[in-house]
Simulated assay, not measured.
Amino acid sequence: MEHYEKSIIPLIESVYANLTPLEKTIADFFIHNREEMDFSSRNISQLLYVSEASLSRFSKKCGFKGYREFLFHYRQTFSSSDEPAADDQTKLVLNTYQELLNKTYSLVDIPQMERILKILTTKKRIYVYGRGSSGLAADEMRFRFMRIGLNIVSITDHEMMRMNTVVISNDCAVIGISVSGQTEAVINSLRESKKQGAATILMTSCKEREFQKFCDEVLLFAVKEHLENGKAISPQFPILVMLDLLYSRFLQSDKFRREALHEYTLNVITPVPKDKNGLR
């Protein structure tokens, strides 16, 4: 469980929704392939019944100069590990978690983490928006970061998100959480918050060029749709892993003071035991 590998598969998955049907055929092959083989453009084009030009266009949509560069990175991260037995449900679930962790490791961008950390430490108030399971993750972020001194509020109701826009200013940062990147209430609130001068961060599994127009940072987390046993995994898991990475860096940025705040908060919320007379 301690071995991590860099992989370009999360990059493929982040642009998957923007691919043409033909390009999705190519993406599905590279996402699910587990065998070492001849990956030359000629062989793959014949295997998938696509043109070599289609392979080149697909590679460019994934962020590479062409198929040759894409293949170089794909070969570096290729693994031929055996799949767990189909009837071993425990292994399937645990290996799905492991794959999510590997994908998260591949997506971590340290300079971006530092930029987000700067936003969190310089803005007077942080708002976190999310709906459904993403709303639960937003609440978890508020609970954790509040304990170490961050002025943070989570909002999970779409009407409250709209109303909250009136108090947004350039002293604020707004973090939106949407696994699909299509949660209308969250996306619209980020767009409006940007107009109000706030720093805006979107946490999502989907990479869209449109987000760059109203988001200062788009923090990608691992997606589970293409994992073998994804339905057994909570959709909050990849979000919480990325939040843990942010939390760890935030804590270390002023470790002594933040740990003291955390301890103080725990003491405040822990009930004081009563003596034998019923007094505290």
Score class of each variant (00 low, 15 high):
Glu2Pro: 02
Glu2Gln: 05
His3Arg: 03
Tyr4Leu: 15
Glu5Val: 08
Glu5Gly: 02
Ile8Thr: 06
Ile12His: 13
Ile12Thr: 12
Leu19Ser: 06
Leu22Pro: 00
Ile26His: 03
Ile26Ser: 10
Asp28Val: 06
Phe29Asp: 00
Phe30Asn: 07
Phe30Lys: 04
Glu35Leu: 11
Glu36Ile: 10
Arg42Asp: 06
Asn43Gln: 10
Glu52His: 08
Ala53Cys: 01
Leu55His: 09
Arg57Leu: 10
Ser59Tyr: 13
Cys62Val: 11
Tyr67Ser: 08
Glu69Ser: 09
Phe72Asn: 06
His73Ile: 00
His73Arg: 05
Gln76Tyr: 08
Ser79Thr: 07
Ser80Ala: 12
Ser81Tyr: 04
Asp88Asn: 15
Gln89Glu: 11
Thr90Val: 14
Leu92Ser: 05
Thr96Val: 07
Asn102Gly: 11
Lys103Pro: 00
Val108Thr: 07
Pro111Trp: 03
Gln112Leu: 15
Lys118Gly: 07
Ile119Ala: 09
Thr121Ser: 14
Tyr127Asn: 03
Tyr129Arg: 04
Tyr129Lys: 05
Asp139Trp: 09
Phe143Thr: 06
Arg147Asn: 14
Gly149Asp: 06
Leu150Glu: 04
Ile152Ala: 14
Val153Pro: 03
Asp157Pro: 01
Glu159Gln: 08
Met160Lys: 14
Met163Glu: 08
Asn164Val: 04
Thr165Glu: 15
Ile168Tyr: 14
Cys172Gln: 12
Cys172Thr: 12
Ala173Ser: 13
Ser178Glu: 01
Ser180Asp: 03
Gly181Asp: 03
Thr183Pro: 08
Ala185Arg: 02
Val186Ile: 10
Ile187His: 10
Leu190Met: 07
Lys194His: 14
Thr200Gly: 08
Lys207Gly: 00
Arg209Met: 08
Arg209Phe: 09
Glu210Arg: 14
Phe214Thr: 01
Phe214Tyr: 14
Leu220Tyr: 06
Leu227Cys: 13
Gly230Tyr: 15
Lys231Met: 10
Gln236His: 02
Ile239Asp: 01
Val241Tyr: 05
Leu245Asn: 07
Leu245Gly: 07
Leu246Cys: 12
Tyr247Gln: 09
Ser248Phe: 01
Phe250Leu: 15
Ser253Gln: 01
Arg258Val: 05
Tyr264Asp: 08
Val272His: 15
Asp275Ser: 01
Gly278Trp: 12
Arg280Asp: 04
